[in-house]
């Protein structure tokens, strides 16, 4: 029971982190990062190969690079950094000159190709089989199979999610967040008003990449395995579905979406009686995800919790001028 609840909560924290990043990139700034999941994967792989011992010393049934056997929190910090550092090279190719929909496609193709390369290069990250037996953080000091460890891990993951929530909140409620929204609404006009749109996009690409990298590290530290099948491109679409359902550009919407869509679906199907041939239920799940996106974009394009209108306090109280505007800061 403890394991079930803590697993659920760790997944919730990871999905909340991912949805916050997508809300910042897509909801606030209008960038459709269809390669989002590879940032998460990069974080997970980084954390894994930094905490794993050398592959030759680890039973020899898997092959991978590095294997530095580093202790927590270095792998997590490195995962966050790798997520951030992956952003500039991709951004430089994709975000500079392409039309917005081509940006999305380029990133989608990148996601497919990255998975293909990792799958077909066993010496890199153990190919299709993926990494297993990833040491859990501080497992040399505590028993990772104890209830206490599970709860502590869960608490840590949730605290990180809350911290990131407030960081993203700071960004979107700031003048910079306003500029990002202006760019989303009309990029050409924003440029004509002195906004360096490429640099702005790059900045949210890096911040989102860092968050994604961290979320990957948290996930792999808990489930201890990571393989290409866990980061196929449709996984990104689930997160987009979550943000669209929850409400783009609204952090509370991102959290709600994370709880409703990725977490909710996983749980709902767990309790369904098995019916039909094997594989029918996952297929229906994907149909539902696609249907949710279409349905919400048609009937409620701004989601359950839409972006809030920012109202400035009236003039007679100039000292309080921005209280209401940034009231949630």
């Amino acid at each position: 029971m403890t394991y079930y609840v803590t697993t659920l909560l760790v997944y919730a924290a990871v999905d909340i982190l991912a949805c916050l990043a997508i809300s910042l990139q897509f909801g606030v700034s209008g960038i459709v990062n269809f390669s989002f999941i590879i940032f998460q994967a990069a974080g997970a792989y980084t954390a894994a190969v930094l905490s794993l011992p050398r592959d030759t010393a680890n039973g020899g049934f898997q092959t991978y690079i590095l294997g530095l056997n580093l202790s927590f929190p270095i792998p997590w910090i490195a995962a966050t950094l790798v997520g951030a550092l992956l952003a500039p090279p991709i951004g430089l190719v994709v975000l500079r000159r392409l039309r917005s929909d081509y940006q999305a496609i380029a990133m989608l193709v990148l996601s497919v190709i990255a998975s293909l390369v990792v799958t077909n290069t066993p010496a890199f990250l153990d190919g299709a089989a993926g990494l297993a037996l990833v040491p859990q953080p501080l497992s040399d000091k505590f028993n990772p199979y104890s209830d206490g460890y599970h709860w502590a891990y869960t608490a840590g993951a949730l605290v990180l999610a809350v911290i990131v929530f407030f960081i993203v909140q700071r960004i979107i409620n700031s003048p910079y967040g306003r500029s990002l929204r202006a760019m989303r609404e009309n990029e050409v006009a924003a440029k004509a008003l002195g906004k360096n749109a490429v640099a702005m996009k790059m900045s949210v690409f890096v911040v989102g990449g860092a968050i994604a990298g961290l979320s990957g590290a948290i996930l792999v530290g808990f489930i201890t395995t990571w393989a290409p099948s866990t980061w196929l491109y449709p996984e990104t679409l689930i997160l987009f579905a979550a943000v669209i359902v929850g409400g783009r550009g609204n952090n509370y919407g991102a959290v709600l979406g994370a709880l409703l869509v990725p977490v909710g679906f996983e749980e709902a199907t767990r309790y369904l009686p098995t019916f039909g041939p094997p594989g029918l239920i996952p297929a229906l799940e994907w149909v539902c995800i696609g249907g949710l996106i279409l349905g919400f974009l048609w009937f409620r394009p701004r989601g359950v919790l839409p972006e809030q209108r920012r109202v400035f306090a009236a003039r007679p109280k100039p000292i309080e001028a921005t209280e209401q505007y940034a009231g949630r800061d």
């Binding site: 929909d101 029918l280 297929a283 149909v287 279409l294």
Partner: peptide
């Protein structure tokens, strides 16, 4: 808008593939 249509077509692609599977 353009990016909305890309998301829609990807969602459609997912639906078609998974309706076909069974």
């Amino acid at each position: 808008n353009l990016i909305g249509m890309v998301i829609i077509s990807l969602a459609v692609s997912l639906v078609i593939a998974n309706v076909m599977l069974p």
